[in-house]
């Protein structure tokens, strides 16, 4: 293996590799590492602070969200009560109108019944009066033969009087 046998080149290899390493070390340490490390650090700080800000914002947003949710719930409840109230109102109105109609109908019924009653009474009275007159007339004819003239005259007068009175009382 030349790596073990070529002893004569060892000096140069050791010398140059150490020298090169030292030069690279100083150059990198002087010029390359500081700015890059600085920017790494800076970014880390920035990211950290931004994460902090984001966290704060997130909390704020969460608070806002909770507020909004609460408000939304309130609004919902309000709407619900309004709907409830409207429903109650409409039901009340409905009931009222039904009641009114019922009252009206009942009244109309009463009126109609009354009218019917009145008419019926009137008719009954009329029929009764006619019947009375008729009965009287027929009775008169039967009785006329057996009575004296004086009695006749008195009975007729009485009947007339009666009929007249009747008719007067009825307003005919």
């Amino acid at each position: 293996m030349p790596q073990f046998e070529q002893v004569e080149v060892f000096h140069s290899l050791i010398f140059w590799s150490l020298i090169s390493f030292a030069i690279l070390f100083f150059l990198l340490k002087r010029f390359a590492f500081p700015p890059i490390l600085e920017v790494l650090e800076e970014r880390e700080n920035k990211i950290r602070s931004e994460i902090g800000d984001a966290e704060k914002l997130r909390q704020e947003a969460e608070g806002l969200k909770a507020d909004l949710g609460r408000e939304l719930k309130n609004a919902h409840e309000k709407a619900q009560t309004i709907i409830q109230m409207a429903g109650d109102e409409s039901k009340k109105i409905q009931e009222k109108s039904i009641q009114e109609t019922q009252v009206k109908v009942r009244q109309m019924q009463n009126d109609a019944e009354q009218e019917i009653q009145i008419t019926r009474n009137k008719l009954l009275n009329e029929i009764r009066s006619y019947t009375a007159a008729l009965t009287m007339a027929s009775t008169e004819k039967v009785i006329k033969k057996s009575l004296s003239d004086d009695d006749k005259k008195r009975l007729i007068d009485e009947s007339i009087e009666e009929v007249l009175r009747e008719m007067e009382s009825r307003g005919v």
Binding site: V9, H11, S12, W16, L27, L28, A32, I36
Partner: peptide
């Protein structure tokens, strides 16, 4: 001491120059 420059040393220099060059390019 014999400190002759050989192919190995030159190759190392090329490699190190590339590293340093890339870093300098960044900076």
């Amino acid at each position: 001491f014999d400190i002759s420059i050989s192919k190995a040393v030159i190759a190392m220099w090329v490699g190190l120059s590339i590293v340093f060059g890339l870093f300098m390019l960044v900076v």
